[in-house]
Nucleic acid binder design. Structure first.
Length: 298
DNA sequence: ATGTCATTGAGGCAATGA
């Protein structure tokens, strides 16, 4: 379907993004504008809110991307886009519950990595059956993530996790205390997932910075920058040393009729080891410094 | 409780989920 040279598959750097579009049909102009401007290599989309038949594959192909998608009427729906190639599907839906009909997980190989695209249940109102579903889904995801991590493959788990990991990830924790996104159970699940060894890319590179990926439509939260960090990209052990940059394309949230989420991304170098070399230089310098300090002490 | 937006089924608005 696509014409590309072999070298296009071996990119010197790889940009992987996740974007909850909140309706693929109503957000299509934004998606295309963002793809054209930022040129991500792999994209995970959530909240398509469309059946499979109305996924706009034609214009997405015209924009230079192959795609896989799993739609559903009205709600949910996930997709994976890959620049200049068709992603190779490795999984459709999470294992562990054959009766679960909600379209929330899709997994594929593209550009030398495996990408899991997820839309974790919101879980509100809490407590209640929706929160129970969220936690049950999370447990299934944790189990599957463990399998992926142990495989040793280069894996990115990208999506809308609907979890505020810590109080640094919310403009005002008190406003969200009763929300499913901030419950101790939700946070505990996320912490347990990270404890498998995954690297939360944004936090790895920006440990103390307030970074948001979502601003709801209420009470002028976007103009006031009253946001949450709930869209995450987790990197496997193989990929973590390649992490070069991570950020949020918040300009997309500022467009008229925007999604309540902004695209969130990581940039990976294709050769590991640079970071290690840098760390070595730092540790060598650090070894010298204490000697000087000690010498200055009385 | 409220705020806003996208979706649907039925219709020119109300219910639902987020």
């Amino acid at each position: 379907m696509f014409l590309y040279r072999e070298r296009d598959q071996r990119l010197s750097k790889l940009r992987i993004a996740t974007f909850n579009v909140n309706g693929i049909r109503s957000r299509l102009p934004h998606l295309l504008q963002w793809l054209a401007q930022e040129q991500p290599d792999i994209v995970c989309l959530q909240e398509l809110k469309a059946v499979d038949g109305s996924f706009p594959i034609g214009v997405i192909r015209d924009a230079g991307y192959g795609a896989l998608w799993q739609g559903q009427p009205s709600w949910n729906g996930v997709a994976i886009l890959a620049k200049g190639m068709d992603p190779l599907e490795s999984r459709r839906g999470l294992p562990g519950d054959a009766a679960d009909m909600q379209s929330r997980y899709l997994e594929a190989a593209a550009h030398g990595v495996i990408v899991g695209c997820l839309y974790l249940p919101n879980g509100n109102p809490q407590p209640g059956p929706k929160f129970e579903y969220k936690l049950a889904w999370f447990e299934r995801f944790i189990k599957h993530a463990a399998t992926l991590y142990k495989s040793g493959h280069p894996v990115v788990l990208a999506g809308d996790y609907n979890v505020i990991p810590t109080d640094l990830d919310v403009y005002n924790p008190r406003s969200w205390l009763k929300d499913a996104l901030m419950q101790p159970e939700s946070r505990e699940c996320y912490a347990r997932l990270l404890a498998q060894g995954w690297t939360d890319a944004i936090r790895e590179l920006h440990p103390d910075e307030r970074i948001y990926t979502f601003w709801d439509y209420f009470r002028q939260h976007w103009p006031r920058n009253a946001g949450l960090r709930i869209d995450h990209l987790l990197l496997s052990a193989d990929l973590a040393p390649r992490l070069k940059a991570a950020g949020v394309d918040s300009w997309v949230r500022d467009l008229p009729k925007a999604s309540d989420h902004a695209p969130t991304w990581v940039e990976l170098g294709m050769v590991a080891g640079k970071k290690k070399a840098a760390a070595k230089r730092v540790s060598t310098a650090a070894k010298k410094r204490p000697v000087t300090r000690k010498a200055k002490k009385p």
